[in-house]
Design a protein around this nucleic acid. Structure first.
Length: 773
DNA sequence: GGGCACGCGCGTATT
DNA sequence: GCGCGTGCCC
């Protein structure tokens, strides 16, 4: 396989330097690192040191002189993963190696490649990358232009369909006939129109980055050949998450030497719904004959009980490559299982449990809040926890949520920057032409569109002509003239070296009236948005100019900045993949919620198996303590529903599970915990009839566990309380502005302007005048 | 053109 | 139960 040596092999030292890093590896990891040539599948179970093996392998490739840093293609899915890998390789080799230019996400690498070969895709090399928002706006226009009823056939849906096709590497002419019925039989046609429009705009969407490169490789042997030679070794992280387009791209590039090492875990494939094909990893040995399959099975994260519980659940899946995780760790605590009356009770119990864990209970060590995570199936489950934690003053952070660069105010501001840099950016112009309100509504905007189209020019240019022809009047005309004037001026300023781009950004936000818009906004979000704009300007400082910044942002959507202080993490199971916490709570294990009814309805057994892998991911995040819970009743879209324990609970091996006495059902009695307006008897009967519940009761009988009910909040933060007086105006991160109506211990009762009356812990609010705007 | 009221739909999420 | 989007009215 490693036939043709590169030109500089002699210099690259056949005699490898000492490789002390190899001694740090276990036998399987070492095998995966040393099997440098030919196809390798590294099946790395949860917590088995996958990143360590992967980065050491790269270090070894460099150290043995097999490849220079720029001859290694290493692909990840997220920027975070790419960053981590870079940092670890740097540490391994002691900064001796300059950055690896081809270590990055699929998308980042494809952008680089596509800029070099843009003309082969009918683009100019300075093409712009549209995000989801731009994409949908473009499709909306197409749908309108085609006189399609937007209500019955929303742009979102079309975007989803086209995205799905692109994930499968289908260009409009390759969409199979079986899919022709999509979008009222017009899917393929609209797809072709959309692609044509993108070309006109010299733009691509995320899916195109892969799709264009696959097409180029398939149709230009010389280009493909060049990169096959160049990328001597290929490494792929999270291979189970690859979609068809990514798979084809990899197979094309690895087609010559087959030096491809894919790392992944079929049991952690949880992105089928967005195009990932578990089949890619299951088929690896067929795709790459002679592949070595190396299993990383020694787990360094979790106790045997946790591993056994996870493995019990996942063993119910059929299509698996199969792994058996083992550990040298002490037995530890069993996975704990507890049922609650309803979702609020579940949140209350977890809140109290966390507080006692901080102090250390039941013979366990004390946990710091940073060591605790709550992993939910769906983000709406987070609300119960947020509400509860705010009430008891338990610090928490929500991971995920809208990313910084996806926030409205950031996208607006960036649209202004884009216009300054390239006034022909029609999508940017559309976004901000009437933000802030300039009296340029649909009608005025239509006139601009018509004028631009008639002259075959950009919207900015069209707007100028429209004004020159007196096609607009009144306030709108004056405001538009001001905006156009501004765009011209900012563009000129961008070219002046004496004005820094940071200053320019401030000037743009100021002169456009955008900052003022939020300053005059009385809603509770406004201060936060202004804060975000400040952060945006600060982020600019790290770049040479606006153009460089915009390019960076189009590919990177990071959400790093996190407040100081110990906090419980709350996130979805999906967001938790790749993370680990000593203690993990897994609430909401109820059939229909988890496994999700929708997943099962839409994808049947396949869907259920993916949900089960999600359960596996959840349990294996825990190092020392995993607590699974479910509620008998839950409010779903405002309606109370009785819930059955998840079928996954029945799959937990009994000997590794400890059933805790459910306080709401054993100690407190039903009546006390029953929410108003539901049929207590009916829901109780349902819960009682489920196998999971019966077994739980049986086990609880064997080994009753008493719940220590300790009083909480013994320490009152008097200083925080003393800072407020009744009637005072305060600001709360979640609830916005309000006035203090009562003070009680360390809590304040506040009548919020939007959120109504709430009891909140004093240190969670600030005096309203302290807000920086 | 902006503000309000009504109706619908509601998952997980990266680039 | 809530938020978003549309449509109607001023």
């Amino acid at each position: 396989m490693s036939s043709a040596p590169g030109p500089s092999l002699s210099q690259r030292a056949v005699s490898a330097r000492a490789a002390p890093y190899l001694d740090e590896l276990n036998p399987a990891q070492r095998a995966a690192v040393e099997a440098l040539d030919g196809p390798v599948l590294m099946l790395a179970g949860a917590g088995t040191g996958k990143t360590k093996a992967l980065t050491t392998r790269i270090a070894h490739l460099l150290n043995t002189g097999r490849a220079r840093p720029n001859e290694i293609l290493a692909v990840t899915f997220t920027n975070k993963a790419a960053r981590e890998m870079k940092a670890r390789i740097g540490r391994l080799l002691g900064e001796a190696v300059e950055g690896m230019p081809w270590l990055g996400t699929f998308h980042a690498i494809c952008v680089k490649l596509l800029r070099r070969h843009a003309e082969l895709a009918g683009l100019k090399s300075n093409f712009t990358i549209l995000d989801t928002d731009d994409q949908i706006r473009l499709m909306k226009q197409l749908i309108q232009a085609e006189n399609i009823d937007e209500k019955r056939w929303p742009a979102r849906q079309l975007a989803g369909i086209i995205d799905h096709w692109k994930n499968r590497a289908w260009t409009p002419d390759k969409v199979p006939a079986a899919e022709a019925g999509a979008f009222n039989n017009r899917g393929t046609e609209l797809y072709a129109l959309y692609q044509a429009r993108l070309k006109e705009l010299n733009a691509v969407d995320f899916g195109d980055l892969l799709l264009h490169m696959v097409t180029i490789f398939q149709t230009h042997d010389d280009v493909l050949e060049q990169y096959r030679r160049w990328f001597r070794y290929i490494l792929v992280d999270e291979y189970q998450d690859t979609n068809v387009a990514q798979y084809l791209w990899l197979r094309l590039l690895a087609g010559g030497h087959h030096n491809i090492c894919c790392v992944g875990d079929d049991d952690q494939s949880i992105y089928g719904w967005r195009g990932a094909e578990v089949g890619n990893i299951l088929r690896f040995e067929k795709d790459f004959p002679g592949a070595q399959v190396i299993r990383l099975e020694q787990n360094y994260r979790s106790t045997p009980h946790i591993l056994a519980a996870a493995s019990g659940v996942i063993s119910a899946n059929r299509d698996r490559l199969g792994k058996t995780l083992w550990t040298e760790a002490d037995e530890g605590e069993k996975v704990r299982l507890i049922g609650h009356w309803d979702g609020e009770e579940e949140a209350r119990w977890i809140g109290e449990e966390i507080e006692s864990m901080q102090r250390g209970t039941r013979g366990m060590r004390p946990f710091s809040l940073d060591e605790i995570a709550i992993l939910v199936r769906a983000s709406h489950q987070m609300r119960a926890f947020e509400d509860r934690f705010l009430t008891i003053g338990l610090p928490y952070r929500v991971i995920g949520g809208p990313r910084f660069y996806e926030r409205m105010e950031i996208r607006d501001a960036m649209a202004y920057f884009r216009l300054a840099v390239s006034p022909a950016d029609d999508l940017a112009f559309e976004r901000v032409v009437n933000t802030p309100k300039r009296g340029l509504g649909d009608k005025a905007q239509q006139k601009i569109q018509v004028a631009a189209r008639a002259a075959g020019v950009s919207l900015v240019e069209g707007a100028k002509r429209l004004l020159a022809d007196r096609g607009l009047s009144g306030k709108g005309a004056a405001e538009l003239a001001k905006l156009l004037d501004g765009i011209d001026r900012w563009g000129r300023m961008a070219g002046e070296p004496e004005i820094s781009h940071v200053e320019l950004a401030e000037i743009i936000l100021d002169e456009s009236g955008y900052t003022a818009m939020w300053q005059n906004d009385k809603s509770p979000e406004a201060p936060g948005r202004l804060e975000n704009l400040k952060e945006l300007v600060k982020a600019l400082e790290e770049f040479e100019n606006l153009t460089g910044f915009l390019e960076h942002v189009s590919l990177i959507m990071d959400n790093e900045a996190e407040g100081e202080g110990e906090k419980v993490s709350v996130m979805t199971l999906h967001a938790a993949k790749g993370l680990e916490f000593p203690a993990v709570f897994l609430p909401g294990w109820e059939d229909g919620l988890f496994p999700s009814q929708r997943a099962m309805d839409e994808s049947g057994l396949k869907g259920l198996e993916e949900e089960r892998r999600l359960a596996y991911v959840g349990i294996t995040r825990a190092g020392e303590l995993a607590t699974i819970s479910f509620a008998g009743n839950r409010r779903v879209y405002g309606q109370w529903q009785s819930q059955l324990p998840s079928r996954f609970i029945d799959e937990l091996p009994e000997e590794h599970v400890e059933v805790l006495t459910p306080p709401g059902l054993y100690g407190g009695g039903y009546g006390a915990a029953a929410p108003r307006g539901i049929e207590v008897a009916a829901s109780r009967a349902d819960v009682y009839n489920s196998p999971g519940w019966k077994r739980m009761q049986a086990r609880a009988g064997e080994r009753p566990v008493s719940q220590p009910r300790e009083s909480r909040h013994s320490v009152i933060d008097l200083e925080a309380v003393a800072a407020y007086a009744v009637g005072e105006r305060v600001f709360h991160q979640k609830f916005g502005y309000g006035a203090v109506t009562a003070i009680e211990g360390d809590k304040l009762e506040v009548e919020f302007e939007k959120a109504g009356s709430k009891k909140v812990v004093a240190r969670f609010v600030t005096a309203a005048d302290d807000i920086p705007f």
